[in-house]
Design a binder for these strands. Sequence first.
DNA 1: GCAAAAGTGTTAGGGCTACACCCATGC
DNA 2: GCATGGGTGTAGCCCTAACACTTTTGC
Lengths: 235, 235
Amino acid sequence: MTASAPAVDADGIRVAVSTVIFALRRREGAAGAPGWELVMPVVRRIRDPYEGRWALPGGWLRPDENLDAAAARTLGETTGLAPSYLEQLYAFGDVGRSPSRVVSIVYWALVRADEAAAAGAPENVAWFAVDGLDGLAFDHDGIVEYARWRLENKVGWSRIAHGFLPELFTLADLREVHEAIVGRRLDPANFRRQVESAGGILATDEFRTGAHRPARLYRTDGESELAERGPLRGG
Amino acid sequence: MTASAPAVDADGIRVAVSTVIFALRRREGAAGAPGWELVMPVVRRIRDPYEGRWALPGGWLRPDENLDAAAARTLGETTGLAPSYLEQLYAFGDVGRSPSRVVSIVYWALVRADEAAAAGAPENVAWFAVDGLDGLAFDHDGIVEYARWRLENKVGWSRIAHGFLPELFTLADLREVHEAIVGRRLDPANFRRQVESAGGILATDEFRTGAHRPARLYRTDGESELAERGPLRGG
DNA sequence: GCAAAAGTGTTAGGGCTACACCCATGC
DNA sequence: GCATGGGTGTAGCCCTAACACTTTTGC
């Protein structure tokens, strides 16, 4: 957070915007399991409160920008990332969650694996596996837990998993993303049929060649939105 | 909104809390359909902007109260109601949604039919059917539409419908609540089995006598929460 | 040929839907 | 008895899980 805090008004309430950012990373070391794991970037706080602790990337809401824009801006400023998917998570505003009164509009975002790698490692930014994550500043542990729950739920009835994938992908790619999110292996045959009948993907004429039988490449069907959220279009 | 606006800070951002309140009312006039319809209270604005227009009940967030408490307080002050269920809906903060910069943390609430009737009709409060509602102040039309969508979705996988019912109710009561929310008739036989297998209700030894065969009375199983929302407990 | 992943087929089970049917009460 | 809502039974359909099986490639 390089921006300075806004002047505090008579009521002492300030509005911040933070983001829980999910990405996928090849599971390191590890046994034969060739899977992926969920990781997220956190930034080290350089001032009180919680100086030295890891916290969600974020910053103060500016008077001339929408909430969505503030989330995209602050996560870009702190981590160098541009999200492939961004959605509001929840507004946290308990009196005791910070020494001063701060209402945090929290977003959650997905970034593609290649983007996460390209962003490098800015100063004071570190990536951690989401599962064992603990000890964040403020109430951010609980916020991450809630975002994780929302991601796992939403992957079951929307197409947000595509937010982790490049333009062209195989059904095995898509399945591995789902497996990483729900935390268990999925039957390739059944997964194929479910995805095909649900729609939202388009088969191309290209194949990915490799060690075995070539796999057909698919692309996301741009016609429909990435994730349904009812009559909401942002605000 | 009897409270005066807080002083505007250097950034000019103020935090408000509003609530979309749902209740059920016997369908008036109408044909033989003995059903219920969703209604909600709105308050007439007594100052600019949108003076004279109907708006969601709400008020300014106080520096010493949590968001949930602010929602409960402001809807009580403006409408005299105490909700049987209250959940955060979304934070709206677009730059242009109000002449001055206001971030609104919007909640949605359920009140029981008897409570709604007991609250009477405070000054400048009116109840309208949700379905034809239009012409509210600010961006409140869209907010109501989103809350309506959330209610209809959530009734399918949680037990929030109980928020409309008194302590003791028949399965027909519960079914009529669902019918009013989803907007179509439900098969009594299948509804009974689904509710019973889903759990969450306890059969009592009492029956409601009436014009026909007495119907068994049930009560909500207090063991589990009214609505699952993951690892979130309020904030 | 062999291993392994891509992709297809098949079957059993569960839940949902539609609807037939019986039960209990007021009139 | 009759009408009506309460409550039970049942058969078809669809979706899912499990897993056998065929196809296609690199080595």
